[in-house]
């Protein structure tokens, strides 16, 4: 049965049982248990007034945990002290998402945005020491939990998230050496896409959505964009990220390069799919993409590429 509300809270990691766990810091194992307990406490959702469970409904379990872990101060209880870290965790991460996904924030509005990010972080807590990678699983999360897109079409919100995440990937990714001129005349050459080039097959024109717009769409408002399928490339020139609309044919060819086919194989595959495509078009595209620095002869080591968590 489809849940009426998003159910990310059901993915809360179970808190270690205080009755069976005996943290200490006399061994590394004890230290590990202590840190797990502390971590589980500060990563729980905040209460409505920013406290653990809220002032009106204090979370007794968290208060008991705080008392186990933390000494009281002159002006603060153990729970007060724990809550400083609890709030910092959520505020810091929410701020990071606000900066990385401004269009999503603008579309959903602060409340729904905050709810989505909280649910996301409960399912996918940060798994990288780099804060800029904190949103890397957000496209996947939205595929898994489409209800979080409401009241907007799921695909619209997903496309917007993929677009904004791709901008981050493109901004930070490295640049591999460009092909030499003589290499480009060899039909057997294998061309690959630069790590700072991301291809997106979108249903909505999300690149038109203004992340700086003055107000978010209120709940129940008309859908701000109509479906308009498109293929785009996000790429970096110098220090700036741009996007470029692509034809279906050129998008197909670029994707063939990503599969590691030789130039000849990629063109043949594209010609099979689009038999009416004039041969000179391939030359034009290759010239253009070479001048934009989109191609390389090196395979990106995906394991060390920031872009490995793709959009």
């Amino acid at each position: 049965m489809k849940p009426e509300r998003p159910t990310a809270s059901s993915h809360l990691s179970p808190r270690p049982n205080l009755k069976t766990v005996h943290p200490n810091a006399d061994t590394v194992e004890g230290l590990r248990e202590l840190q797990r307990l502390f971590f589980s406490a500060i990563t729980r959702p905040l209460g409505p007034d920013g406290r653990a469970g809220g002032k009106s409904a204090p979370d007794l379990e968290t208060a008991a945990l705080a008392a186990r872990l933390i000494r009281p101060g002159a002006k603060q209880s153990p729970l007060d002290r724990l809550e400083i870290y609890h709030r910092q965790y959520w505020i810091r991460l929410q701020q990071a998402f606000f900066e990385d996904f401004p269009g999503l924030w603008n579309l959903l509005g602060p409340e729904r945005f905050r709810g989505l990010i909280e649910a996301y972080l409960l399912r996918y807590p940060p798994d990288s020491p780099l804060l800029r990678e904190v949103g890397s699983h957000l496209p996947r999360f939205l595929r898994e939990e489409p209800d979080w897109a409401a009241p907007f079409p799921h695909r619209l919100v997903l496309d917007l998230v993929r677009f904004e995440w791709a901008k981050i990937v493109t901004f930070y990714a490295r640049e591999l050496p460009l092909p030499r001129k003589e290499e480009m005349t060899t039909r057997e050459i294998r061309l690959f896409l630069q790590p700072h080039l991301v291809l997106l097959d979108l249903r909505y024109p999300v690149e038109r959505w203004d992340p700086e717009g003055s107000s978010s769409a209120p709940a129940g408002s008309p859908i701000p964009l109509s479906p308009e399928p498109r293929q785009i490339a996000l790429h970096r020139q110098g220090e700036t990220v741009y996007h470029k609309l692509l034809s279906r044919e050129s998008f197909f060819l670029l994707r063939s390069f990503r599969k590691g086919l030789s130039l000849l194989e990629a063109c043949e595959r594209t010609a099979e799919k689009f038999p009416d495509l004039p041969p000179e078009r391939y030359h034009e595209w290759l010239r253009e993409w070479s001048s934009l620095g989109w191609l390389t002869t090196r395979t990106a080591d995906r394991s060390r590429s920031f872009g490995s968590k793709t959009a």
Partner: peptide
């Protein structure tokens, strides 16, 4: 961090010899 999850905060240590 704990179990491969990161808080992105500087959290206080217990001051023990084992730690």
């Amino acid at each position: 961090s704990a179990d491969g999850r990161y808080s992105h905060d500087l959290l206080p240590m217990p001051f023990t010899m084992a730690a």
